[in-house]
Structures are given as structure tokens and as C-alpha cells.
């Protein structure tokens, strides 16, 4: 092999030619070359900045009611008009980014952590622990996840915190099922059998060999779960089971807008477009991560 390379490129240093690029370098290069991913990141960055600096950017206070200026159509002062309490819809839209992004990140982080931990435990240790965890997963998965989340919020009372807890509680199963399957096959690989043979502890094997291997797939799934959580949270808030009035949240803005559909359709359109743009941006990033991190798709 080495001879061939020298022949093909005699003036190149041998070490440079044969040193393979690491997995993460190839993945990063692929990711950066993906135009959609960059677009997704740019859009998401704008949304994050809007959420963080909402106080500075929003033209009006999103909670300031003005009864002399209700249900106004879009104008120079109020880009997308005002709602039934005279609050500026555009300002509320900007503050809504805060709630939606927070829900997405919190739910995803919560379900990823729990889901991966239980998946690793179930797959690695097997036996009774595995049985208990997987039966629980089977039971939760028999329910439509959105319905189970709705029921949990109904039982514990509608609020933003309960919404996030409920969504986190139903979404971890997705991670557990996936990670367990991966760990089951990883456990039989030669390098892990080898690690065990030289006396590595379970803890060391999990942290040095198992987690790094499941990491790429988990990252992809986690990015999609942010998008899913935002969609689910908007639906629940629309039903009145999430963010409570007067919180500026896209889903509850849509449910407010319903009565004004005839006279102020813009109020029904704008929050939905905001959700769609956010979710599209996250899905762009997720798709690009999948293409970059999944070696089976890399061709």
C-alpha cells in the first residue's frame, strides 16, 4: 500500500498522505459543506438572539394592554397589528420565541439524559433491570405520546412547567429504545470484550467505549426531539394545557386568534409561521447532523 502511494504522489510526505482524517473532522467538514445546515444555524441564531434580547428588540411591552387600541390591523406602528387587549402582536411574537426555544431545549435535554441513561443501563446490564425498563417503555409507547402528555398535564394542572415535565416524561422512551438496541450490539463487539478481558470496570467501559459510540446517533435524535417538543408544546398550549395567559406563547396566541379569524387573520397566520420557521431550521440542522454523523449514510 505504502509503495503505491509514494508512486502516485512522490513529492508528498508519506505521513501526510496516509494519516486518515478522524471521524469528527470528516463529520464537521460534511456539516459545514451542507448549505441547508448553515441556513438552519443562521435562522436559529437569529431566533435565539431575538429570544435573549427580546427586551431590547421588541417595539412594545408584550404585556401592556391598551384598551383604546384593540384589534388593530397591521400598520406602521404595529407591524402585525394588536390583539383583543391592545397588546402589540409582533412584540408578543418575539417574546414567544423565548418560551418555545426554552421548551424545546429543556424537554430535549431532560428526555435525552433520562432516555440515554436508562437505555445504557438496560442494554448493558440486561436481566431483570432490562426487563423492567423495557416493559415500562412498551407501556408508555402504547399510548399516543401526545395523548399521554395531555393526560398528565390534565392530572397535574395546566402550566408551563407541568407541560415540560409531561413532554419530557413521555419522550425519553424514544431514546431508551434506540440506545438499548445499540448497546446490545456494542456489548458483543471485540474491543469491548477485549476491554473486559483486560479488567476494565463496567463504569470505564460505559464511559470510554459505549457512550462515545452512541453519541452521534443520540445527537441526531436529540436535535429532532427539540423540533418535536416545540410542535407538541404549541399544540398543547393551543388547547390551553401549556403556557397560561397572559404568557406570550405561539400556541396560545393561535388559540386567542381563533375568535378574531374573520377580522384579523394575520393573528392566526403569524405565530404559525414563526413555529414553522423555527422547526424547519432545527430540522435542517438535524438532517445535516444525520448526514454528517451517520457513517452508514456517508456516500
Amino acid at each position: 500500500m505504502a509503495e503505491n502511494i509514494v508512486e502516485l504522489a512522490p513529492d508528498v510526505e508519506l505521513t501526510e498522505v496516509i494519516r486518515p482524517k478522524s471521524f469528527s473532522v470528516i463529520a464537521a467538514q460534511q456539516f459545514i459543506r451542507n448549505g441547508r445546515a448553515l441556513l438552519g444555524i443562521a435562522v436559529l441564531l437569529v431566533l435565539v438572539l431575538a429570544a435573549v434580547f427580546a427586551d431590547q428588540i421588541a417595539p412594545y411591552d408584550p404585556y401592556k394592554t391598551n384598551y383604546t387600541n384593540v384589534k388593530q390591523p397591521p400598520s406602521a406602528e404595529h407591524v402585525i397589528g394588536t390583539d383583543e387587549l391592545g397588546r402589540d402582536s409582533f412584540s408578543r411574537l418575539i417574546y414567544g420565541a423565548r418560551v418555545s426555544l426554552m421548551i424545546g431545549v429543556v424537554v430535549s435535554a431532560f428526555s435525552t439524559t433520562i432516555g440515554v441513561a436508562l437505555g445504557v443501563v438496560a442494554g448493558f446490564f440486561g436481566g431483570k433491570v432490562d426487563m423492567v425498563i423495557m416493559r415500562l417503555v412498551d407501556i408508555i409507547m402504547s399510548f399516543p405520546l401526545l395523548v399521554l402528555a395531555i393526560a398528565l398535564v390534565a392530572v397535574f394542572g395546566p402550566s408551563l412547567n407541568n407541560l415540560m415535565a409531561a413532554l419530557g416524561f413521555v419522550y425519553w422512551v424514544v431514546f431508551t429504545r434506540l440506545v438499548r438496541g445499540m448497546v446490545l450490539s456494542l456489548r458483543e463487539t471485540e474491543y469491548i470484550v477485549g476491554a473486559r478481558a483486560i479488567g476494565a470496570t463496567d463504569f470505564a467501559i460505559i464511559f470510554n467505549h459505549i457512550l462515545p459510540n452512541v453519541f452521534p446517533v443520540v445527537v441526531v435524535l436529540a436535535s429532532f426531539s427539540v423540533a418535536e417538543a416545540i410542535l407538541a408544546a404549541a399544540a398543547l398550549s393551543y388547547l390551553g394545557l401549556g403556557a397560561q395567559p397572559p404568557t406570550a406563547e405561539w400556541g396560545s396566541m393561535l388559540s386567542n386568534a381563533k375568535e378574531l379569524m374573520r377580522i384579523l387573520p394575520v393573528m392566526s397566520i403569524a405565530p404559525g409561521v414563526a413555529i414553522m420557521i423555527t422547526v424547519l431550521a432545527i430540522n435542517f440542522i438535524g438532517d445535516a447532523l444525520r448526514d454528517a454523523l451517520d457513517p452508514t449514510l456517508r456516500h
Binding site: L231, M261, P271, G272, M276
Partner: peptide, 17 residues
């Protein structure tokens, strides 16, 4: 891609409109 990114209930509201 749009199919998986549009909130279905909002799509319904748009159809209604």
C-alpha cells in the same frame, strides 16, 4: 420537509381560513 415541520393544527387553521 415542510410536511414534518408545519404544526398540523395550524395547517388546519390555515385551511379553515
Amino acid at each position: 420537509l415542510f410536511g414534518v415541520s408545519i404544526p398540523a393544527f395550524w395547517f388546519g387553521i390555515m385551511l379553515m381560513l
